[in-house]
């Protein structure tokens, strides 16, 4: 399993390998951080080969999809992460039977219908705050793996391409990524532009990047 980026490192020599993995994870986050722009589909019109164009657009969409704001709640395990450093969620929580938390400690125990910033940096919120199902785990996966996964109706909640486009462009929990509240870094661009990009990818054959 992948190690958390930066945090919970036991400071012992034997964990050098663990540290290495952690640093890789961090580098990924920093790279995204540096480019807050999201290109729309028009920026890819010059690519004549449709497959290549489609792949390029998905790679651009990856700036959003692989952003910590999104990946934090698409964990491989049963626990979400938080922050740009993708540290484990504190307090500790688990997905529970329906991805909305465990009995006695559900997401809405703390998360409100909207961001609450009254307490310092506050608690982010959405009426439907919850974890992505385990089949939609993105944490630690390559963009190619995520792409294949998104298209696979056995793993994407049974959505066809139109439903996927609607989900990416309209879903309010997806949209939270652009309005995270407090001093949280939002994902690049706007949900509208992301929706256009995703739709253009879908209509250009929905080709996945090689890696």
């Amino acid at each position: 399993m992948r190690m958390p980026a930066v945090v919970n490192i036991v400071r012992t020599a034997s964990l050098a390998a663990v540290l290495g993995v952690a640093l890789l994870g961090n580098a990924q986050a920093t790279e995204i951080d540096a480019d807050q722009q999201l290109k729309g589909p028009e920026a890819f019109e010059h690519i004549e080969d449709e497959t290549e164009r489609s792949r390029a657009m998905f790679k651009e969409a990856g700036k959003v999809i692989q952003h910590p704001r999104c990946v934090n709640c698409h964990p491989v395990s049963d626990t979400p992460r938080q922050g740009m450093d993708m540290r484990p969620h504190e307090p500790p929580v688990v997905r529970g039977p329906d991805n909305h938390g465990a009995p006695g400690m559900v997401c809405s125990t703390c998360h409100q219908p909207e961001n609450v910033d009254s307490a310092g940096n506050g608690v982010p919120g959405n009426p439907n705050w919850h974890l992505a199902p385990r089949s939609m785990a993105w944490y630690g996966k390559s963009l190619a793996e995520i792409c294949t996964q998104i298209k696979d109706q056995d793993r994407n909640g049974g959505m066809d391409m139109d439903e996927l486009i609607h989900h990416m462009a309209e879903d309010s929990l997806v949209g939270w990524g652009w309005n995270p509240g407090g001093d949280r870094t939002p994902v690049p661009g706007t949900q509208e532009k992301f929706g256009e990009l995703f739709a253009a990818w879908a209509h250009s054959g929905a080709h996945c990047p090689a890696e």
């Binding site: 930066v6 945090v7 919970n8 490192i9 036991v10 400071r11 012992t12 020599a13 034997s14 450093d85 540290r87």
Partner: peptide
Amino acid sequence: LTGDAIRDLPFVKIS
């Protein structure tokens, strides 16, 4: 268990 003598507390560093 691990062979590591922890001499700087705490055991787990939290960023």
